[in-house]
Computed example of a mutant assay.
Amino acid sequence: MIKIDNGAIEINGTGVELLADLSVITLKLKEIMKETGLSESKTNDTIQFVVNQGLMYEEPKESEISDTLKSILEHINRRV
């Protein structure tokens, strides 16, 4: 289970349960991005880029999170 409330994130569950959550989120995100006019290829590339960014850090520092978010936003803006 993933809960977000006012910027606070709570994640509970087994690895399998969280992977199922990630799958549902990815599917819905892909649907939303395609509705905004992105091609399937650009949508997939953007989602893959963001997932790869998440895999790069085990325990990021605050500055690394900020840099990663900037990089993700720049990548998304180039694709729109």
Score class of each variant (00 low, 15 high):
T14V: 03
K42Q: 00
G15N: 03
N44Q: 12
A20E: 00
M56H: 14
S41D: 10
T68Q: 05
E40H: 03
E58L: 00
K70G: 09
V51F: 02
N6C: 03
I2L: 10
E31R: 12
F49P: 09
K30R: 05
T26W: 06
M1I: 05
K34W: 04
I76L: 08
E10D: 07
I25P: 08
S71L: 12
I65S: 01
Y57T: 10
L22A: 05
N77V: 13
L38S: 04
E17K: 09
K28G: 04
A20T: 05
L73I: 15
V80G: 13
I76Q: 07
D45S: 09
N6R: 02
K70F: 04
T26C: 06
P60F: 12
S39T: 08
L22F: 09
E64F: 10
P60T: 14
T36N: 05
M1C: 10
K70H: 14
K70V: 15
H75Q: 11
V80W: 14
I47V: 02
V24M: 03
V24W: 02
Q48P: 06
G54R: 01
E74T: 14
T14N: 01
D67R: 13
S66G: 05
A8S: 09
E74C: 13
L18A: 00
T46H: 05
D67K: 15
L18I: 07
T14M: 01
M56T: 15
V50M: 09
V24E: 00
N44L: 01
I76N: 07
E40I: 03
K34H: 03
K34M: 03
V80N: 15
K3E: 07
L27W: 11
E62N: 12
N12A: 09
N6E: 04
S63M: 00
N6Q: 05
I4K: 05
Q48I: 14
E64P: 13
N6G: 06
E10Q: 11
I9N: 05
E31P: 03
Y57W: 15
V80C: 10
K42N: 07
I32Y: 07
N6T: 11
V16E: 06
V51M: 15
T68A: 10
G37H: 03
F49D: 03
Q48T: 11
M1Y: 01
T46R: 07
S63V: 01
V50F: 02
E40Y: 11
K34V: 02
D45G: 05
E10R: 13
I4Y: 01
R79P: 06
E31G: 04
I32E: 08
E62A: 13
K3P: 00
A8E: 00
G13W: 08
